[in-house]
């Protein structure tokens, strides 16, 4: 997995995306736009070098559709709610800063969860604790303690939907374990997930590498 060859293969999705982006900006697919796109993609990834993102080892198309559907619905509904809070003359909204303990350990899942939560109006990520995977959110319009708990549960649900769609096998196991603690069923428990879990025994949190992910 590691080594020069591995790192080149991990760059391929990024390079492809940069070429697609370039042709979209040109609004036309021609030899010139694709060739300049490839050259620019190589140049940009060399000049602005970033550590490659650990891409997930599984994708669930149905999970993606469910996540996107939920996300768009939440986005529109919450937009109107915040818009109403803004113009409602009767009161000034009460807010809370809520700590949400996430179950996953990967950069990608944490980032996507934070992005999805931030994009939905009414919640704003004030602080992210990468070490312990805690998101601190500023939540608008929490009048009671029940509202705070609901906000927390909503974020956990967003994380679970993201992991179900594109979480790595390791993320899935962590989410399943945390759901088991709350006596809920697993999100994914297929044959391939179980086979993976047998091949990769759980590493205790103390021994976890700082960059996350399993050393293969």
């Amino acid at each position: 997995m590691s080594g020069v060859k591995g790192s080149i293969w991990r760059q391929v999705p990024l390079l492809l995306w940069l070429v697609v982006l370039w042709t979209l900006l040109w609004d036309q697919v021609s030899v010139l736009s694709v060739v300049t796109g490839i050259l620019l993609a190589l140049l940009v990834t060399r000049v602005f070098y970033l550590p490659p993102v650990e891409l997930p080892d599984r994708v669930n198309p149905l999970g993606l559709v469910v996540f996107l559907g939920h996300f768009l619905f939440d986005l529109v509904r919450a937009s109107f709610q915040v818009a109403w809070l803004a113009i409602d003359p009767r009161r000034v909204p009460t807010s809370s800063i809520v700590a949400v303990q996430l179950s996953t350990k990967s950069d990608l899942s944490l980032t996507l969860t934070a992005l999805a939560v931030s994009l939905v109006p009414g919640s704003l990520v004030v602080e992210a604790d990468r070490q312990d995977d805690i998101l601190y959110l500023h939540v608008l319009g929490t009048e009671t303690a029940a509202d705070v708990e609901k906000a927390r549960a909503d974020v956990v649900a967003v994380e679970e939907r993201i992991v179900r769609a594109i979480g790595s096998r390791d993320d899935v196991r962590r989410v399943n374990l945390s759901r088991a603690d709350r006596s809920l069923g697993p999100i994914i428990s297929g044959r391939r997930q179980r086979a993976w879990e047998e091949r990769h025994p759980a590493i205790p949190v103390e021994q976890y590498t700082s960059e996350g992910g399993y050393p293969e």
Binding site: L75, V76, A78, S79, F80, V82, A83, A86, P93, S95, L119, V120, P121, G122, L124, V126, H138, L140
Partner: peptide, 14 residues
């Protein structure tokens, strides 16, 4: 912090 909600969020849907 509350103003950040108004400044960034309805804008996305808008």
């Amino acid at each position: 912090l509350s103003r950040m909600h108004a400044a960034t969020k309805p804008q996305i849907a808008g």
